[in-house]
Design a protein around this nucleic acid. Structure first.
Length: 299
DNA sequence: AACCGTCAAGGTGAA
DNA sequence: TTCACCTTGACGGTT
């Protein structure tokens, strides 16, 4: 694969090489433990997670990875407290600031429980979780923009795609200014959910760029070719776009696997249609899959 | 230290 | 109607 000099490539959340040495950013606990040990223990785990994130970021830079998806599990039970109230806050903040100074494009991908078009407590939980991610980027000192995207799926359709996306756009106005400046939306992998074209009205209403996921598009193309969908998403960006790429486990590694399952490794060439984009690869073998793909990518 | 049942959240489709 | 799954398996009690 040819990679343009200014183009960034990376992977999601976990570095397998470092994880083998217990360097990880997703230390957490089950509910019972949180009830027993409270935020003092959450603080200890969060501090370790954040310190290890710095190690991973530096490893990435040393190995030529200049975009990285940060884990959403950095702060265990983040919905239950303010980060600034943690006992280790000053050390956590200092480490986050250090991370924020590194020349790497950091992004996040909050989980599937976020439904910005939801109502009642579903919407409340979603706003809380998204604001938490934005707070972390604020603490890193990252200027709010789509460069450091907070990327989510539109969520369920509630039986009516159009009406749901209108509600999504309305609820967007409930978010903080910094979060609004960072939010992006991604196309889904199932025909009942949202294609790139489905998401265009959201972009037109509230200006959230569309992250193009090649694999999801292949499973749920709607009426667009890959190139058309790529270009549709590409045009929604005000900074260099990010795309997601992965291969199917079923077609490449295990005929019995679900079609939507990601493969361990990467196989297909990425066609960026002559455009400069940053690519986040989603393969189970993480950085090792990307390094196998690109050969000697250490710069 | 290795095993394995269980684990916050919402919506979805397959079993 | 139960269950696995999704962005990203990992926790923790038991052997």
């Amino acid at each position: 694969m040819e990679v343009e000099a200014s183009q960034n490539i990376g992977y999601a959340c976990i570095n397998l090489s470092l994880q083998a040495e217990k360097v990880t950013t997703n230390r957490g606990m089950i509910k019972k433990t949180f009830q027993e040990k409270g935020i003092a223990y959450a603080s200890q785990l969060a501090l370790k997670n954040v310190q290890d994130l710095l190690t991973i970021v530096d490893w990435n830079l040393a190995h030529g990875f200049r975009i990285f998806r940060v884990s959403s599990d950095l702060f265990p039970w983040a919905s239950e407290y303010k980060i600034s109230s943690l006992p280790d806050f000053s050390e956590i903040r200092a480490t986050l600031e250090e991370i924020g100074r590194r020349p790497i494009r950091l992004t996040v991908h909050p989980g599937p429980f976020n439904h910005l078009a939801g109502q009642g407590h579903v919407l409340e939980n979603t706003i809380k979780d998204l604001e938490y991610h934005s707070d972390v980027f604020d603490l890193m000192g990252l200027r709010p923009s789509h460069w450091n995207k907070i990327n989510i799926h539109a969520g369920g359709t509630y039986g009516d795609k159009t009406a749901t996306l209108i509600r999504f756009a309305q609820n967007f106005r409930l978010l903080s200014e910094n979060l609004r400046a960072r939010l992006t939306i991604e196309n889904d992998d199932r025909p009942t959910l949202y294609t790139v074209t489905d998401l265009v009205p959201v972009y037109e209403t509230i200006g959230t760029p569309i992250v193009f996921d090649y694999f999801h598009h292949s499973l749920n193309p709607g009426y667009q070719t890959e190139e058309e969908a790529f270009m549709t998403a590409y045009k929604t960006w005000d900074v260099r776009p990010v795309v997601h790429f992965s291969d199917s486990r079923q077609t490449r590694e295990d005929p019995k696997a679900r079609r939507e399952a990601h493969a361990d490794w990467l196989y297909s060439p990425v066609n960026t249609y002559g455009k400069e984009v940053d690519i986040v690869f989603e393969a189970k073998m993480k950085e090792q899959a990307v390094m196998r793909l690109t050969g000697e990518m250490t710069i």
